[in-house]
Design a protein around this nucleic acid. Structure first.
Lengths: 133, 133
DNA sequence: TTGCACTGCGTTATAACATAACATATTAGG
DNA sequence: CCTAATATGTTATGTTATAACGCAGTGCAA
């Protein structure tokens, strides 16, 4: 009754927790295989799908990767800042920005349900160069 | 010297022009094979990459698909509204929204270079239901 | 207890998306 | 002509994701 999946999902969360950055589904698969060599992709994708629905993890569409949600809230939409240099991803919750966006595109009658907002660039640690002037 | 690729790119643009919605790389491959059965994926991806760089087409990260740019401008960043019902994609240019977003996430020192903004939902044609209160 | 439906999970296979690595061809310039 | 530089073709493979099917655990009612 939905109980059985929880151990598997916990293992996935655990693997992601140990990672410093986003993981691909197959990275996670490899991690789970350390515990149980017989795991198949399907199994991992099912767990990822469930965790994504719960809002525990986010999928990064532009990387085909997954990461733990960095805030404690349920099912929120976030802006993901992806450093193309070091791979770090930072999560920003800014409902007002998304609301503005919905409003702009809603002018044509479009009804938004899910926002994919991923900004690529360079994080503070990787861009010390332009500090002066 | 860069001339040779243009016919190929023109064929890709032509194929996308005939399509009503976004096409996957392999859809395009199939279309090009009607003209030249020996085309390989690599060839298509090279053309797509060149066209994307030029701003002639956009890649939809959350669909793994490509579509012609709907506006005439060069190399702009756009908000893509994707109807999950009929597959139609609408492009909205709203530099101010992206600028606001950059500003919000820039507080932590992040330097944006590329925005991936894709909003899934239902377009006006596919959501006639909620018209009356 | 038995039978049954529901749901989650395992297993196998394959589909869909993308790139690496190397060979060949075209062009420009010495 | 020879060579370098770059674009393209070709083959193979890597990576990401899902379809299709079967089995196992659970809850429920006869």
């Amino acid at each position: 009754m939905g109980k059985r999946g929880e151990e598997l999902q916990a293992q996935v969360v655990d693997a992601m927790d140990r990672a410093s950055g986003p993981l691909s589904a197959y990275d996670i698969l490899a991690a789970l295989r350390d515990l149980n060599p017989k795991i198949a992709p399907t199994t991992v994708y099912r767990a990822l799908s469930a965790l994504t629905d719960k809002g525990v993890i986010h999928r990064l569409e532009s990387l085909n990767a997954y990461m733990l949600c960095q805030c404690a809230e349920d099912a929120h939409q976030a802006i993901m800042s992806i450093c193309d240099d070091c791979g770090t991803v930072e999560e920003t919750v800014a409902p007002d920005v998304l609301a503005t966006m919905s409003k702009v595109i809603g002018k044509s009658g479009f009804e938004p349900s899910r926002h994919v907002v991923e900004v690529h660039g360079t994080c503070a640690d990787c861009a010390p160069e332009q500090a002066g002037s």
